[in-house]
Amino acid sequence: MTATKADIIARLQKDIFPLQGFKTALNNIALDKAIGPIKNAFPGNHFPVGVMHEFISDSKETAAVTTGFVAGVLAQLMQQGGVMIWIGACKNIFPPAYQSFGIAPDKIIFVDLQKEKQICWAMEEALKCEGLVAVIGEMQELSFNASRRLQLAVEQSKVTGFIIRNNPRSLNTTACVTRWQITSLRSQLPEGMPGVGFPRWKVTLLKVRNGKPGSWDMEFAAGRFRQVNAIPAIPLQVQQKTG
């Protein structure tokens, strides 16, 4: 009896997900593979494509780290070819670096805008365009209404949208399906090796619709994400030795 109840609930959930913006038909297997254990946090154990993702960053360093994580995800989306649009104040962007994440920088179109109103308008227009793989917007504030418009646009066109919010004044409610925060972790190399290792991030899923928020320590190497164990604190004497 209880088993049938669970079946009914599972079936109902399956019916509800498409209504909430999760489209199972769009699942990107390559991305699910590359993203590692994070995919289990989402309904259906698939990284949601064709929805709005929101990223929060609080400094220039975390902005770069967030961009790195987004680039890692985008690289999987762009594997089939295609073009994406980057909207925002692009004065910090260094295009050649995207190549090392597996994205051809010449396949990104940058739209250099300052005003939030203009960015929102351009994002909405871009998200309606089915010829794109992804749209990335950089802005500070995102009102609920604006995010709702963007989410409705992606539900029509199935383009994936990313919003990177730098230094938001308040973490207001938005209609985006997820909210992430990425911070940097110390890289680790095999014992005794000099230099800086692969980028490591603390990936925190603050909010996810119908999923399980969580936090993972991830390393990005060779185009895929790998979960790593927490790094022990630096012993004091090592700290002194460096340099």
Partner: peptide, 11 residues
């Protein structure tokens, strides 16, 4: 695009 040396995403 040259990727022989690592480059930062933001400059």
């Amino acid at each position: 695009w040259k990727i022989s040396n690592p480059r930062p995403l933001h400059v």
